[in-house]
Design a protein around this nucleic acid. Structure first.
Lengths: 219, 219, 219, 219
DNA sequence: AATGAATGAGCCTTCATTCAT
DNA sequence: GATGAATGAAGGCTCATTCAT
């Protein structure tokens, strides 16, 4: 860690110019891992640098401060996540139930279940200390994600496929299990509790689309 | 600070009764507030002491370290939470739907909606750095809470009130919106998103007990 | 220097309360020495702490930052210097020549020739980087010192003892050799040039009070 | 940075002529500005390079280290200063009073009042940390300047134009106001004090050549 | 010759922890 | 029991210096 040359990484033979372009995302990738694993405060920049295979000073060539690195991690992770999510909704023409299932499952496959899932966990853990980033995340991610779900719900209600219900609350209820999955993946899994995401999601959809109560007993 | 070195909880050799009596809960109360607000690492013991109205040295009369204080906060906050939750189940004889609603709503009223709700948020944020506490929390709280929900679900399925479904996954699906509420209260509220807990819970119950799909279209 | 206990100072047996009062001036005294010797930027707080016989952290019990310490050094050194200087002028009733000589010589004996003389040197070296302190020094020291000299000159001119001349410029001309003495003591002495302060001051007074030109040749 | 390790000036083994030719004085000019303004330690080589319009690496093509650059700044600034000063004395045949006035005023016009005046300020501020440069400055500049003044004073005394007095001290007394002018220009002007150099010099000469005391009262 | 990305030693500052009173 | 002065290890950040291009 403190040896003059970084043994495992010194073998990188790419020309400097080639590496310079790739550097910022190498750094944010390393930082994402550590921020998610240890939290912002407990992550040392030495460790981020070491994981990225650079020296500590190099971090400051690309980011003005630890906090700026944190912002970059969130911003960089979110752009593709957003694009991927919105892509799936454009021009969908199946049932609204399938649409909802597609949105939620797609989120898990593209985001929650990948290393990007660490970002919502980061936001949850750190937003109190970084209100600016929290606001950014709300404006760029949460509100847009909720719009997708809102449109799907309203579409289903309008077509008579879904019962009428309080759409705004329902959005959050739909999201909650997804949130739980990332929380579980990045925190509670250390508790020893075991969740099988596909099975969990299947049950989520099952309850969501069919209801808990048996047919004859509905109120 | 480094988790591998954590002595197990029982390593404290001072007579337990003597210590418990003397340990002022003002200290853990102050610590809970700050841990929840700022996270473990960003909370300074000076601030905890100041909020409790004692000197910093006094903290060390009651807790061996910052980490021990953290453990005490979790332990102390969980005892009443546990008792309150289990109390509501004993000898319940209404419908299983009412039982479920009562359990979930009761949790919010007794725990999630009070300052104790900060504890799950703490566990979520810090469990990676405190696996021992995460384990403790799982064994003492999560597993017992899941047992309550498991029993309610199995009771409803056995009586034909509920459809048969994957009980273990369903437990987590039921819990997820509650988790979301505390996460919202202690983190995402800073994002600017607005959740109305009673309305959110009502929708949760509505979806849960009736299903999203209109009657005639059920698969 | 880095051993756990400070060997030469650990022998200090004064009670804590006694030492606490004395601490700030012990720290500023150590800092004055090093700031004067090395300059502000090149002075390490480790060295200041070591010279004062405390740990580095202790500095921060008394001063918020390195810059705050610097301000304290200047402010603390200046109060007695000011008092001493003004004391000498009150109620003086000899000749104005003697008054001038007394003021200048007194300044050297009370300030310039003592370790307080390092403060003007500090101001000269660092004022560009600390305009706030420079302003402070001007308002509290320079302007008051100039007032003393202005009064003495005007007194002498009014009485016919001195020729009429541009008083404001003359003040600075009177001061210049004193300034040179501290500059010499704290900087240029390292050049190898040798100045004998009493002899230098005697010549200063000689030229000042008698003029360079021989009597018969005066213009 | 640590003075004991300074290699002597002559340690540079590259052919001197080759090096001097290639060394762009734009670099030393930029460095002079910044050293004078901020001091040696607070001047960043990035800033020097930026002001000179080159990259930081280029500095190292011409100077082995920051300290070498500092030496070059002093050396380079002193050559013309020295030449200009000595030029004025050769073959002078007016009165000694005029000679003195010419030397002092000339120094201000050619050196002190130009950007070269920053160099004495630099020497004053940094000589403690660069004894080698201080020595160099003493040998090459101070001693030669003092020789000029010594000769002028001895000439005037020998001719009866000046009173007999302690020549060595008198030299420093003559220099002091000049020193004060550069100190004021590069440091104390930030204090808010206001000096008008021509008026100041006029008063200096007035006091010097005529004396403070009115004729009839001379001791 | 010139560049600028990369380095790593070093310093200011913080804060959990200790201990004399 | 309580205090708070003192400690010292650790981390964020800077910047002189190097070197591949």
């Amino acid at each position: 860690m403190t040896s003059p040359a970084h043994p495992p990484f010194a073998a990188d033979k790419r020309p400097r110019s080639r590496r310079k372009e790739a550097r910022p995302s190498e750094l944010t990738a390393a930082a994402l891992d550590l921020f998610v694993e240890k939290g912002f405060a407990a992550t040392r920049l030495d460790d981020v640098a070491a994981r990225a295979g650079v020296s500590k000073g190099t971090l400051y060539l690309y980011f003005d401060s630890k906090e700026a690195l944190f912002k970059a991690v969130v911003e960089e992770g979110i752009v593709p996540a957003l694009a991927a999510a919105e892509q799936r909704f454009a021009g969908y023409d199946g049932t609204s139930a399938e649409l909802l299932r597609g949105l939620l499952l797609g989120w898990w496959q593209q985001i929650g279940g990948t290393r990007l899932g660490g970002i919502p966990k980061l936001i949850i853990s750190e937003s109190r200390n970084f209100p600016e980033i929290a606001q950014y995340y709300h404006d760029r991610v949460i509100s847009r994600g909720r719009s997708l779900l809102r449109a799907a719900l309203q579409r289903g209600i309008a077509s008579g496929e879904f019962r009428a219900l309080d759409v705004e609350s329902a959005i959050d209820v739909l999201i909650a299990p997804l949130l739980m999955l990332v929380v579980w993946r990045y925190s509670l899994c250390a508790c020893g509790n075991d969740i099988d995401p596909p099975r969990f999601l299947a049950t989520h959809f099952d309850i969501l689309l069919n209801g808990l109560l048996a047919d004859g007993r509905k109120a």
